[in-house]
Design a protein around this nucleic acid. Sequence first.
DNA 1: AACAAAGTTGACGTTAACGTAAGGCATAAC
DNA 2: GTTATGCCTTACGTTAACGTCAACTTTGTT
Lengths: 130, 130
Amino acid sequence: MNASDLMTIREMCDAFDVTPRTLRFYEAKELIRPERQGSRRLYSRRDRARLKLILRGKRFGFSLEDIRQMLNLYAREGSNLAQMQSTYDLARERLRLMEDQRDELEIAIAELKAELDAGAMMIAAARAAD
Amino acid sequence: MNASDLMTIREMCDAFDVTPRTLRFYEAKELIRPERQGSRRLYSRRDRARLKLILRGKRFGFSLEDIRQMLNLYAREGSNLAQMQSTYDLARERLRLMEDQRDELEIAIAELKAELDAGAMMIAAARAAD
DNA sequence: AACAAAGTTGACGTTAACGTAAGGCATAAC
DNA sequence: GTTATGCCTTACGTTAACGTCAACTTTGTT
């Protein structure tokens, strides 16, 4: 990080634990827009903030396309009510999906555990009969 | 289901809520082996049992390849200790993965909820200032 | 000047689990 | 006999998020 607060692609990769390919990919998908010094990309503080949001979105299970839309809404006019609302709705929907997924997972875990208990008994039986 | 207990592909689809493509795909992947009457597939009780196991495996998050191996182990010699053990190990590993996934999901849900609460307040504020 | 290190732009490859035609028998109904 | 189904095989298409070259240009180092 130099005086003007700009970072090279490698510094970004080290800082956020991503590959150059990933950063270029996000740029191609219009999720970030680093400035250029000649042909080299230089990432500003703002770019880093966006990347943070992107990575967080991914942890939440949003697709890059979802994230792009939310970022654009966010950026265009921070105070547009309708846009904030639609971002909000999107997030709520995602939350429901995540909760459903968690519930299904919980059920599957319980079932698999039961299965394993039964299987463990069968293995023990086979071993005993050996 | 006729006298000999065999079902056509369509009956199978209706019974298990899958598409013909799916059944043929599973067959190509050597997960099921329906007999033929001419070129037509006919599914036996045994095939249905396997399909049940396949679908259950999918709910557990196993890949078709995992499932294939487990079915083969299961079928070859029901009482081979080493084989049962490896199936068991695979299942235990999968269980761990599922539990990890559930935990991460739980965290992400909590984070997203917090985010939404904050967002809700901002929207409310914007609406009030409107 | 010469060479290595870092960055750039294409562009094809990967993975899983099917979807989706396209074109062709075959059997069942009318 | 012919239309209407139903089934068959073959094979390319799909989706997401990058990975993995290849072939250059640019920059830094000695």
